[in-house]
Amino acid sequence: MTSVLIAENVSKGFFRNKALHNLDLKIEEGKVYGLLGPNGSGKTTFFKIAAGLFKPTSGRMTVMGYPIGAETKKLTAFMPTDDFLFGWMKIDGILSFYTDMYEDFDRNKALEYLTFMELQENMKVSSLSTGMKARLKLAVTMARKARLYLLDEPLNGIDPISREKIVKMIMGAFRDDCAVIISSHLVSELETILDEVIFLDHGTVVLAGDAEKFRLEKSCSIEALYKEVYHG
């Protein structure tokens, strides 16, 4: 099993305020991971370090064996919760940007996703609602043929009906040679697609493993397990 992402003893922050605490993780290809935990548990920090936006205080992370840098950004598609797309650009400009900057970006696929999400190319990014911006971010992210997809709360700001569409879209883009890590509060919508779950608490992994195995052993859903991990 090829490891797409390896985190070795990664810490971020100092003294009491550590966002990540000696985090060890191995992400294998061909699997969909659920990165679960309450706000402040370190999910976004983890993603941002993997994406090269944050630098770890100690420890190291590699993607396909490369240390985080320009080489890994080629292989990593990160969708942050932040509003990062140029507001003054039209959607077709965003597509051109991605086409120019990322070799693995498939413009046609992106157009398909846009249609699926009911977005038009001539819309200006700043005029989009929160939900539309979220769908646009996801469309351009999944239209890349990356080895590692990091989706930070992809279902946030999406109405319940569209969430199923989004999950379908994510699974449509999922391949054997890639790994997808989805962080979310909305566990129930993701139950059927998660291969493995990783529970983070205060910057460290408190529980991780095969989702079906947890269901078998604990006779409960991952959502219930979530409640158990963080309230019990």
């Binding site: 994406a51 090269g52 936006l53 840098g69 320009a70 080489e71 950004k73 080629k74 990160f78 942050p80 932040d82 509003d83 990062f84 797309l85 140029f86 507001g87 940007f97 900057m101 990322y102």
Partner: peptide
Amino acid sequence: KTGYMFMLTPNS
């Protein structure tokens, strides 16, 4: 955050 547009690209 719009800086992410450039910073996420595979450029040193």
